[in-house]
């Protein structure tokens, strides 16, 4: 039971991370640009590098957050600090409902248009594995306003685990966070096109918005119940 709650919090935070859409959107752009220019094998390599870039940044960012929490706070967060985190999760839930997606029949996100255009341009100009890796890192960084709190929640749970399990928990978070790009890669390998996937994303946009918002709320309640009241 000692490890069930921390692992559940890490799992829940990672699932919410996986519902965010920027990394998936940029991957679609990369896929579309690359399939038009390169042979499939090259595209697959670029996509693998892109996913590796995301995974690397998530892994390092979560590891760094664990380290900072351990070094600065010495131990897990106090109840008052957890309450601030819960407040931020509720705020993110409201923000996800209100403006994670822009209005209209598209999957345009909250990003400033200049940043979105830059990522779009980089995806089109990506020709080498290094560039694809960097694009993965860049999109993960751009998603940070939403993922930073998730990292803090996960890190706060990870540092109470026995050290042998800490690396496992960080790896679990990273793997769950990169599942959507991996699923997309498999879907395209199985014959789906970028258009099929984008149509699906547009059709289920409201559902994804609700899932993300509810996810932040549920995580907030979960850590409130087990870390503050528990």
């Amino acid at each position: 039971m000692d490890m069930v709650i921390p692992f559940s919090e890490v799992f829940l935070a990672a699932v919410i991370h996986a519902t965010l859409q920027l990394e998936l959107g940029a991957l679609l752009l990369l896929y579309h640009a690359s399939l038009g220019k390169h042979v499939r094998k090259k595209t697959r390599n670029l996509v693998d590098s892109y996913i590796a870039g995301i995974g690397m940044l998530v892994f390092l960012a979560l590891g760094a957050t664990c380290f900072i929490l351990g070094q600065v706070f010495g131990t897990e967060l106090y109840a008052e600090e957890i309450l601030i985190v819960v407040g931020m999760l509720v705020a993110l839930a409201i923000a996800a409902w209100a403006f994670y997606y822009r209005r209209g029949k598209s999957t345009e996100l909250w990003l400033p248009r200049t940043v979105a255009r830059f990522i779009d341009k980089r995806a089109k100009e990506t020709n080498s594995n290094t560039e694809a890796f960097s694009l993965g890192v860049l999109t993960s960084l751009a998603e940070m306003p939403w993922t930073m709190v998730l990292f803090v929640v996960a890190a706060n749970s990870i540092i109470v685990l026995p050290s042998a399990y800490q690396l496992l928990a960080v790896a679990m978070y990273t793997i769950i966070a990169i599942i959507p790009p991996i699923v997309l890669r498999i879907a395209i390998r199985k014959g789906q096109t970028v258009v099929d996937i984008q149509r699906w994303r547009v059709k289920h946009k409201s559902f994804m918005r609700v899932i993300t918002g509810v996810g932040f709320l549920v995580l907030g309640f979960f850590i409130f119940a087990f870390e503050v009241l528990g």
Binding site: L22, L28, L29, T107, V194
Partner: peptide
């Protein structure tokens, strides 16, 4: 129709 969809969605993916 798919090709048309690509251009209808230019700049609207992210």
């Amino acid at each position: 129709a798919d090709l048309a969809y690509v251009y209808q969605n230019r700049g609207k993916i992210i």
